[in-house]
Amino acid sequence: MYQFNYERPKTLADAEALLGKADDPKILAGGQTLIPTLKQRLAMPSDVIDIGGIGELDFIRAEGDAVMIGAATRHATVAQSADVKKHNPALAALAGSIGDPAVRHMGTLGGSIANNDPAADYPAACLGLDAKIHTTRRLIEADEFFKGMFETALQDGEIVKEVTFPHPEKAAYMKFPNPASRYAMVGVFVSRGPWGVRVAVTGAGQNGVFRIAEMEEALAKNWSPDAVANIKVPATGLNSDLHGTAEYRAHLVTVMAKRAVAAAG
C-alpha cells in the first residue's frame, strides 16, 4: 500500500467537509474491495475517509411499502434483518450470498453499489427492484445510477446515504458463482411489483449490470419460467475470460433467469 492520510469522521457533515478539503480522497466503507485494491497498489489516494464509524448510515427501517437501508449497513445485518426477510426475502438472501461470512461482517451496501464491480450482487438488486439511491446531494433512480464498469452517477465528494427498496410482490435472485472467487459469473434478479416486471443481470455484461427488456415483456404477459426459456441473449458485449466465454455467459443468463422465476414462485 502507498501511504495515505486516514480520517474517521463521526458524522456525514464532517465526512463531506473532509472530502472537500482533500486532494484526491477515497471513501472507505467496509473496505472489502478498497483495501485489496490499495494493497495491490492499484489506487493511490491522498486521503482515505473512513465512513464506517458514522452511526447515521447504519440502519434498516421498514416504512410504508419499502425498506430503507443505510449505506454503511453490513451485508450480514441485511441478511439477518427480520424486516428485510419479511418484506423482501430475495434481498435478504442476496445479501447472505455475498462473499463469505467474514466478508459479510465488513462489506456494506453503499460500498458495493458505489464501487459497481461488474460482478457484484447488490447492483442487480437495485436495478431489479427499481430502488432509489439517496445521496448527500440528491435522489438517483437505480436506472440512472449504474453507468458502466466501476462507474456510477456519483460525483466527487458525493456520498451514498441510503437505498430505498420498494416491496416486491414476487422476487428472486439466482447466481452462478465462480467456484474460486464466489463472484457471480452470472446473477439474475427478477421481480414483479408496482413497477411492473424487472429482469436485471450482473456478472455478464462488460459494462456492468443491465436489464433485459424482452424477458420483462414476456414475463409481464406470462409469469412463468417457460416465458423466458427460449429467449436468447446475444453474446455481444458480454464478458469473456478464463472462467467462461461470452457465449457461455449468454447461455447462463437464460438458465439463471428461468431458475429465478421458478424460485420467485
Partner: peptide
C-alpha cells in the same frame, strides 16, 4: 480471521485504524 467486536473478520482486509 480474528473477532472484532464479536464478529469474525479477515484481519488482512482491515486497517488497524478501522479497529480503533
Amino acid at each position: 480471521v480474528v473477532h472484532v467486536d464479536g464478529r469474525a473478520v479477515k484481519s488482512c482486509t482491515m486497517l488497524a485504524a478501522q479497529a480503533d
